[in-house]
Every structure is written in C-alpha cells, then in structure tokens.
Design a protein around this nucleic acid. Structure first.
Length: 511
RNA sequence: GGCGACGUGGCCGAGUGGCUAGGCAGAGGUCUGCAAAACCUCGUACAGCGGUUCAAGUCCGCUCGUCGCCUCCA
C-alpha cells in the first residue's frame, strides 16, 4: 500500500468507545503504537461460534492497524482457573488442571484453524498468580478491598466511579447477589478478587492463606503487566461490559488512580433465532463443529459482512451467502490468473511488488495501449484507486468491515469486466491487472481471507481427471453431447466443475 | 424496576441531512452444444405517527415491536 496515503490515514481513525458511547478519534498513548487487550476464553469447554467473533474481529482490526502503519501489540488472555472449570472437573472426576489444559489446547487448535495467526501474547491466569496477589494486596492496603474468611472482596462502594462503563447505578441494580455459603461480604455488590481454597481445588499460597484468583482480577493484572497503564484498547463481547469490565476498571483505577484502558470496544452477540448464542441458553454451535462443514473463511466473511457492534444471526442462509462471497472472490482470482497467463502463483509469491509475471510482462508489451483495452484499462485504473480509498475510509470509520467488503466487490466487478473484455480481445495489460490483483489480495488479507491459487490451479491434478476432460472434449467435438455430459457428471462427482473458457476447458475444485 | 441498543427493498446488511452501498435470491438478456463462471438490464426500501428544515432513512418527540445487560456468558 502506498506509503504517503497510509501515513495520512492513521490520523483519523474513529472508534466507538463504550465508555463515552460515542465514536471518538483514536489517539494512541504512544505515537505509532497500539496496545490491545481482548478478553479470551475461560477454558472449561469448547469455544463456540459466538466466542470466535471477538477473536476474528480483533485479528482483523490488528491487521488493519498494521496496514496503516501502526505497531500493534495484541494480547488475548486465557482464564484457566475459575469456578466453572472446577465445576466441570468435579463433574468429570478429573483435576481442574486437566480440564484447563484440555480446553486450552482445544481453543488454540480451533481458533488456529481460522487461519488468522495468533495474537502477539496469550497469557494465562495461572502463570500470573504473583501479579494477581500483588494487585489484591495493593487493593487491600488502599482500602478498596478487605479480607474475610480467607477470601478478599472488592469494596464496591469505595470506588466512586463504579458503573461508569455499563451505565449502571449501584443503588438501582437488582438485588442480584444473595449471600452464598461461606461468603461474608459487606455488601451484596462486593465481588471476590481472591477466593479461599476449598479442599480439592487448585490453590496458591497467599497472605490470606491458600486460595485462588477471583474472576475479574486476572485480566486487570495481565493487561497492566503487558500493556502498562492507560493502555489503548480493551475489547471483548458486549456481555462482558457488566460486571467483568466494570470490575476490571474498578480494580485497576482504584490502585493506579489513573485511567485503565482508554478505549473500550465491544462486539455484538451472535444470535440464533434472534436469541443470543450462549452456553446458558443452550443454543451454542461449536466452532469445531462448524469447521467440519465449512471453510473457516466462510465464518470470517460471515462476520465481516456486518458491523462488529451489531448482533448477527447465525443461520444457514446467512452462511450460504458467505459461501457465495468466498466463491465470488475465488472466481475472480481464478479468472484473473488465467488471463495473466497461468502465472498467478508468481504474482502471489511476491506480494510486495514485482507483480508482473514473466509471461504477463510479455503480454503487456505486446498489448501496448491498443485496441479496446484502453477504456477498460482506464476503468480498472480508476477502480483500483477508488477501492483503496473506499476500503480505507470504511475501515477508518469504526472498522466498518461491511462497507469495506462492499468496496472489494466493486473491484471484483471491474476486474471481471476487464478479464471478460480482454479474454476476447486478447490484449492484456498484465502490469495493471497484477496491480489490481495485489490490491484485492492485500485487502482481503486484512479482512482475514487468503485465497491461494492452489485452490483453483490445475497443477497436480490426477491424470484420471485430465483424461475425463480430454474425453469430454473429444465427445464435444464429435457432437456426442450425451457422452460429454457423462464425463462432466463424473468430474462433478469427483468434486470438480468444468468451465469452458476461450482458453479451453478448465477444472475448478468445488466446495 | 433500572441501563442500553436496534427496527432499511423477497432475505442479509452498509449508510446519520441533499448524491448508485454491497451481497444473496428472483426475472430477462449476452456467452455456451447445454451448462458453469462472468457481464448487462430490472427493485424509488427505510416500523408507525407527529415535528424541525428549502431538504430526513439520516435530527427531535411519541407509539409499537425486537434484542442485550443488570446472575455465568464472547
């Protein structure tokens, strides 16, 4: 991407800040750098599709930030000590360590299959017990927390700004919490930051005896450790606003006396039949189940097709649309590469320039600026510039991926028009087409989608399939269309689609 | 009860004062032996009512409806 443009761009990124309930100009704490902390999973079960949304969104957001020149540090934690883990361990008669280990691995595996890489850091709560204890100690010393019965509770009434993130007022909250057994809180609103150990539970030595962290404290400790005070962006699902993020703020700001995170970004919920997908509702769809039936990029495009703050309905027809979107991009590249001269793979191998493959270069020279390609070239040239501008404008406006996607489809259309016209005229400006290709793949990459020419390349196809194609061609020439169609059906059964092009029949893998 | 979000054409889904979103599905056409892919053409939608304005899907008010949070939840 053009350096001059990118440097201008990173001045006017707008993000919606839950704290202010407004879109705000994004100004990083440290010039040119962005620190992001996203609440990852509590590892007591397999992640579902809803859990994948923040993972995908922030991966994409980080890619975009990098594309406009920021140095990004993305931190996503794993909470691997928690009541829910213990409950599951007890139910299955294994140690909670085993549960945590099993589902941490499953999480890494499932999210890894999305093809988005990993966050820069994925710290675990159990590896930060000392930091957590220190934080608890500070809170107690400052009078914001108190020990009772080996547990430590946060004294909510002490933090004047409690409720500022969620808009909750403490005196108007439902009388939500009944005193539980063994709890002796000063107020029902107070929450545990350190829990006294019960027999058989994981525990660590602390100034208050054996115990383990409460739910919210680990994120406060780890985010501050890795990103420092007043770090840039804290993210997660909307449903974490209260109490999780509210409590994180209370914990952090009480001891530091300064702002915790400066921008709070929350993604909307994935729904099924208009109801939030969640474990408690029991309507979850596991990520690993999804990936058995769909290409991971389908999920990513599905997410990208709406704004991250909106709820999004997980339905078969919506997924089908995403399947079609992926096909449309793939078809465009397939066509583009076949026009450039089957050299698409070399164009991909050098994303940072040198977009003109050897054969294409020759074609470009031959093409010159003759014939009907001039106006087509002009249109493509304009589309390239317009797409880059529109994509960036949309993304800079609170990461409007749906708008950004629309800009890509605009480019796809013009590329298709171009390849359509030149495949009949035979004049190809491969340099220009290579530029369009590079832009398309670069921007798709930012949105989390990579398409390799190997997906549609005919290289390495089994001889048997090639024989069928030849058989069909012969039958067609002989006018024996029944035989031709039989061959085509056989190819379809093998998962390949035949497309007749001016360059002859092509095989495209389906599904 | 408190806090908050949303309601856009057959469907999904952008858009916050005047200018074509986009995708999917559908209809017709071009290409093709037929297809597929692609391209072209076709949809004056903004929950309802009232108001502000030269101008509102876009601002304000009310009504209706849907959803989220206030309890574990991405």
């Amino acid at each position: 991407m053009n350096q001059d443009i990118t440097q201008n761009l990173n001045h006017d990124l707008k993000v919606y800040n839950t704290l202010s309930r407004k879109k705000e100009d994004f100004v990083p704490r440290d010039r040119g750098k962005v620190g992001i902390y996203v609440c990852g999973p509590t590892v007591y079960g397999y992640v579902h599709v809803g859990n994948a949304r923040p993972f995908v969104f922030f991966a994409v957001f980080a890619r975009f930030l990098r594309s406009i020149g920021y140095e990004v540090k993305l931190v996503e934690n794993l909470t691997d000590v928690d009541d829910k883990i213990i409950v599951r361990a007890n139910k299955e008669g294994v140690s909670s360590d085993e549960i945590a280990m099993q589902f941490s691995e499953a999480y890494l595996e499932d999210t890894g299959r999305l093809g988005l890489g990993r966050p820069d850091l994925e710290p675990k709560a159990t590896e930060h017990i000392y930091e957590i204890i220190d934080l608890c100690k500070e809170l107690v010393e400052a009078g914001y927390a108190y020990e009772t019965g080996g547990s430590v509770y946060y004294r909510v009434c002490e933090f004047q700004q409690y409720g500022k993130l969620s808009g909750q007022k403490t005196d108007q909250m439902k009388h939500c919490e009944l005193a539980r057994e063994g709890e002796a809180k000063e107020s029902p609103l107070d929450f545990a930051i350190w829990k006294a150990a019960k027999p058989g539970e994981p525990s660590w030595e602390s100034p208050w005896g054996q115990g383990r962290p409460g739910w919210h404290i680990e994120c406060t400790a780890m985010s501050i450790k890795y990103l420092g005070h007043k770090f840039d962006i804290h993210g997660g699902g909307r449903d974490l606003i209260f109490p999780h993020h509210e409590n994180e703020i209370a914990q952090a700001e009480a001891v530091t006396g300064t702002a915790f995170a400066r921008y709070w970004m929350h993604n909307g919920m994935i729904t099924r039949k208009d109801e939030k997908m969640s474990k408690s509702v029991g309507n979850i769809f596991l990520l690993r189940e999804f990936l058995k039936n769909y290409d991971p990029r389908v999920l990513i495009l599905f997410f990208m097709s709406s704004h991250y703050r909106s709820p999004l309905e997980f339905s078969e027809s919506n997924l089908e649309e995403a399947v079609q979107m992926l096909d449309r991009f793939r078809n465009c590249l397939w066509k583009l590469d076949s026009v450039i001269g089957g050299a698409g793979s070399s164009a991909v191998a050098s994303p940072a320039g040198e977009t003109i493959p050897a054969s294409g270069e020759k074609a470009a020279t031959e093409a010159g600026m003759t014939g009907g390609s001039t106006s087509e070239s002009f249109a493509l040239r304009s589309a390239i510039d317009a797409t880059e501008l529109q994509f960036n404008t949309e993304m800079r406006d609170d990461v409007n991926t749906a708008g950004a996607l629309a800009s890509l489809f605009g480019l796809v259309r013009v590329i298709n028009e171009y390849t359509e016209s030149v495949s009949t005229a035979g004049k190809v400006d491969a340099g220009l087409l290579g530029e369009a290709r590079e832009l398309l793949t670069d921007l798709l990459y930012i949105l989390g989608v990579e398409i390799s020419p190997s997906e549609y390349s005919e290289a390495g196809l089994e001889q048997e399939l090639l024989d069928l194609v030849a058989e069909r061609e012969k039958a067609r020439k002989d006018g024996d269309y029944a035989a031709a169609d039989t061959a085509r059906d056989k190819l379809a059964a093998a998962g390949y689609e035949v497309r007749d092009t001016p360059q002859g029949p092509k095989l495209v893998r389906r599904g």
